[in-house]
């Protein structure tokens, strides 16, 4: 594996809240344009780690580089180069689809013409031209998630972090959502995704599984299944989580 291709490098990441250790000595790399699945049970420390990588939370110790910037000193440069979509859904409910796009485009410093170009592109891609002036609050959850993802990659980030993006969404919409993820990856965006759905884990290039703040397994889905001698990611997960 060529070192230069790593877009996220984490060495010995530790995050403590008082005496509670949320992230216990994590080390991993994520390659450029890869779809990296970040799995784990509830409370395993996934969200904590993702917040540290996004510069929302400061690590207790460890060496962490995101998009070749340091998480301790260069958080604003990191933020310019990443997109983020959290499980706590974060579009503005009381403004329209178009206004949400325009607002975030503006905050990321896109030019006016670029903002309009991107809005046209995403509305067409999502087949939402007719709903562009609807308030977010009036849309179904699945649509909101797709819009939130589009907003997160609107400024062409190098990496997009997705924290349980498909929670509570029907299977058809989940499928469409993953098509969007593939397309983003195809366009060179690295996708760092956490999920509870093990069928989604199968779609990832590589998967890490966290248990109690540690990473217990990290490989391609194929290799993990071989390693644990089972036929699905679901069984890999159950084997690890039960120990």
């Amino acid at each position: 594996m060529d070192q230069a291709e790593n877009i996220i490098t984490v060495k010995n990441l530790v995050k403590k809240f008082g005496s509670f250790v949320a992230n216990d000595n994590l080390s991993f790399q994520v390659e450029k344009a890869e779809i990296f699945g970040f799995l784990g049970a509830n409370g395993a420390g996934k969200t904590t780690a993702i917040k540290i990588l996004c510069g929302l939370s400061a690590p207790t110790s460890g060496e962490i580089e995101v998009a070749s910037y340091d998480v301790y000193t260069q958080t604003d440069l990191i933020k310019q180069n990443i997109g983020y979509m959290s499980q706590k859904f974060s579009l503005y409910e009381d403004i329209t689809v178009k206004e949400n796009f325009r607002f975030y485009g503006g905050i990321y410093g896109l030019s006016k013409s670029r903002i309009n170009e991107r809005i046209t592109f995403f509305l067409k891609e999502l087949k939402l031209e007719s709903a562009k002036d609807e308030l977010i609050s009036s849309l179904p959850l699945g649509w909101k998630q797709k819009i939130a993802f589009s907003v997160a990659i609107m400024h062409d980030p190098k990496i997009v972090f997705l924290d349980e993006p498909t929670g509570g969404v029907d299977p058809v919409t989940r499928r469409q959502f993953w098509e969007m993820i593939y397309e983003a990856s195809h366009n060179g965006i690295t996708v760092f995704v956490t999920t509870h759905y093990m069928d989604e884990a199968e779609y990832c290039n590589r998967v890490s599984i966290m248990v109690d703040g540690r990473i217990d397994a990290l490989d391609t889905p194929e290799n993990l299944k071989k390693q644990f001698g089972v036929n699905s990611m679901n069984n890999v997960f159950l084997k690890l989580a039960r120990n």
């Binding site: 996004c54 929302l56 310019q80 706590k88 409910e93 975030y104």
Partner: peptide, 14 residues
Amino acid sequence: EMGTIEQINVTPIK
């Protein structure tokens, strides 16, 4: 409360 501040905090806004 709405959680939108997290989305703001992840942007390079000053």
